[in-house]
């Protein structure tokens, strides 16, 4: 079974993102970039399926600027067999990425696509679901457990308030949640081997996909600053404020 693992290059998890002074977006110049943490979990899960003899080949794919190669190399160092880069400098929104991935799936014919539930930059949480829709494949989002049994995959999902288990016939799309696994470190020999693994570059035009953005970002601003705190006189007043002013409790 072939597994496709899409990975995204995003700001490093440990870096606190700041809004650009001109409000046009986030400050990303000189910021450390990394593989989206949920995608790292996806790569790990694919590698575990391969180690378990379930998967035979893992293909990592990334869409974006040429520097996404760094994240693909990381996926290769973690155990992916080869990589595809769909190179473009156009700002890619989830629907465009899903369409690119669909084109890749049409070419590669994987039985399973595993990807992160969301990217920690735009926090959209859409690409996996959109890809499943475009392919008319089943989807299991927010996976915390994955088991492949023949032509069926059973996925436990983290839903609000608990867990839900679905069984789907392959091919399918799975998006990962944090508790699915703990990604390994790339070993030094594997980092060196990753250099020699194939990395193919494509363009959206070659795949026949229109990636023009559907949404325009008009501005990005800082979240509202912390208001001066107040003392409340009673628990009742506190509950009232939390409910109606701060709106953080139901």
């Amino acid at each position: 079974m072939k597994i496709l693992v899409p990975v995204k290059r995003v700001i490093d998890y440990n870096v606190k993102a700041r809004v650009k002074a001109d409000g046009s977006g986030m400050e990303l110049a000189n910021v450390k970039m990394a593989m989206n943490p949920f995608d790292e979990i996806a790569v790990e899960e694919a590698v575990r399926l391969k180690e378990a003899g379930v998967a035979s080949e893992i293909v990592a794919v990334s869409c974006g600027e040429a520097k996404c190669q760094e994240q693909l190399r990381q996926a290769l160092a973690l155990g992916a067999d080869r990589a595809l880069l769909v190179e473009t400098t156009v700002e890619l929104q989830p629907l465009a990425v899903a369409k690119l991935l669909k084109a890749i799936v049409d070419r590669e014919a994987p039985r399973l696509v595993i990807l992160g539930k969301q990217a920690i930059d735009d926090d959209a949480n859409q690409t996996g679901q959109m890809l499943a829709a475009l392919l008319d494949w089943p989807q299991a989002t927010f996976a915390s457990k994955v088991a492949v049994r023949g032509e069926e995959i059973e996925v436990t999902r983290e839903i609000d308030g608990g867990l839900e288990t679905l069984a789907m016939t392959l091919p399918a799309v799975v998006t990962t949640d944090l508790r699915l696994n703990e990604p390994r470190y790339a070993t030094l020999p594997n980092i060196m081997k990753a250099k020699k693994k194939p990395l193919e570059t494509l363009t959206p035009a070659e795949l026949g996909v229109d990636v023009a953005p559907r949404l325009a970002t008009l501005k990005v601003e800082e979240p509202p600053a912390r208001k001066a705190g107040v003392k409340v006189a009673s628990v009742a007043e506190l509950v009232d404020k939390l409910r109606h002013e701060a709106k953080v409790i139901p």
């Binding site: 989830p94 629907l95 926090d123 679901q129 959109m130 989002t141 983290e158 839903i159 559907r214 949404l215």
Partner: peptide, 23 residues
């Protein structure tokens, strides 16, 4: 924007060939 809505709406949007706006 619960796990219910987040699971469903991107699938709906892609079927309609429109963007989805989260959260």
């Amino acid at each position: 924007a619960t796990t219910f809505g987040k699971d469903l709406m991107p699938r709906v949007a892609a079927k309609l060939d429109v963007a989805q706006i989260s959260d």
